[in-house]
Nucleic acid binder design. Structure first.
Lengths: 212, 212
DNA sequence: CTTATTATACTGACTGGTCGGTTTAATATC
DNA sequence: GATATTAAACCGACCAGTCAGTATAATAAG
């Protein structure tokens, strides 16, 4: 199987268009309710092309999760919060960056892999693993800054950098669920605010009772 | 096939069996991937019965969300943490109760309406509203204790009882997503621990740095 | 320059099966 | 006698996946 990148790139390849369509459609309707025909229509390619590039709908799901990891990875890699010299400032900058992303339509800020894994965790191990890799890989980058901040500020509670990093992801995923239920991002923003307040408290940036 | 069990049949109506089957199957496979035939097989009920009680699969989804609200409502109503006279003890007791539920197979402790709303928030407003009512109704009960605790202990930060109550639900929903991705409840337990620590900090039960 | 070969990208009609939902006709149960 | 319930046949739409064939483009041979 030669998965090499296309030799020449005259235009967006069918594969690329299908992956972009997958991100959009699956985030809107979920994985199971998304049909191959719909993806082809959205991408403007023939159905044959779909099965030329992906051996099944399931393998597209895996590829979409991987593609999600790449694109979001690039987004966060180049985000401005990395410029802070202080690791705690980077952690809080990350939270603020996530909060700033909570705008526009719901399907534009929610998480592809969080949506997919809810549906297929028990029925499709390959997609589940790809989703796990995406979430855990992202959390690992947050964890690095948290660990550095813990060392720098001598913080040791009954928790680890890893558990706090994963907790940030849990809050975000849960915020997406509530945003979907309520039909707007307001609650998600408020929840991320609580997450920030928690981290500030853990690192003594706030005394218990204070103003916003 | 007539299993010929004359009087052994207790009062479990077909509707009831279908709702129980829906909770189990949808929590395992998601709403879209669940078929009517599968629900009938799981419930041991003829397909005609399904459409006798529910006019469509979608209306079953709404009924399942309502049924979920009832059963979980009863579960929490009778939970022991309500015996605490102190409202803050009730809030923390609620968190501990939620944590204690995080055992067994994943589909046994995850949330039906959180799973469903992820899939259908944009495609089926009626199910989404039923899921929202379930989550928001549950949060409102937590909110009452939080509000009482805020008054009793004179806590006023830049947050409301409502936003904190919804935040607890976001943490739980997100913990379920991560548990599904990782295939076990460990991370969910750790995230609920973080949530408890946050509430303790908000109510001055902890000083920033301390032991577990 | 022309033709043959090879490999990949792509097409769209087609297929076998599944889906939600309907219908019918008979049987329990209250 | 009305309300459940059953079993099975049935329907049309839709589904994932197939297949035979076209398009393009690069390489090599005649």
């Amino acid at each position: 199987m030669n998965t090499a990148l296309p030799t020449a790139r005259p235009k967006a390849s069918a594969r690329q268009k299908l992956l972009d369509a997958a991100l959009s459609v699956i985030r809107t309707k979920g994985y199971a309710a998304t049909t191959v025909d719909e993806l082809c229509a959205e991408a403007g390619v023939a159905k044959g092309s779909f099965f030329h590039h992906f051996k099944s709908k399931e393998s597209l799901g895996v590829a979409a999760a991987d593609y999600w990891s790449e694109t979001t990875g690039a987004l966060f890699e180049t985000a401005p919060y990395h410029r802070h010299a202080d690791p705690l400032a980077r952690v809080l900058g990350y939270i603020d960056f996530r909060k700033a992303l909570l705008t526009g339509r719901i399907e534009e800020f929610t998480c592809l892999v969080g949506t997919m894994v809810q549906e297929v965790y028990d029925t499709c191990p390959e997609i589940r693993d790809a989703c796990d890799a995406s979430i855990s890989g992202h959390a690992a980058k947050v964890e690095a800054d948290i660990a550095e901040a813990m060392t720098k500020y001598g913080i040791r509670g009954g928790w680890t950098a890893q558990s706090l990093a994963l907790h940030t992801q849990a809050v975000l995923q849960g915020a997406f669920v509530l945003a979907k239920a309520k039909g707007n991002a307001e609650i998600a923003v408020a929840s991320v605010d609580h997450l920030r307040r928690y981290i500030e408290l853990l690192f003594h940036l706030r005394k218990g009772k204070d103003r916003a």
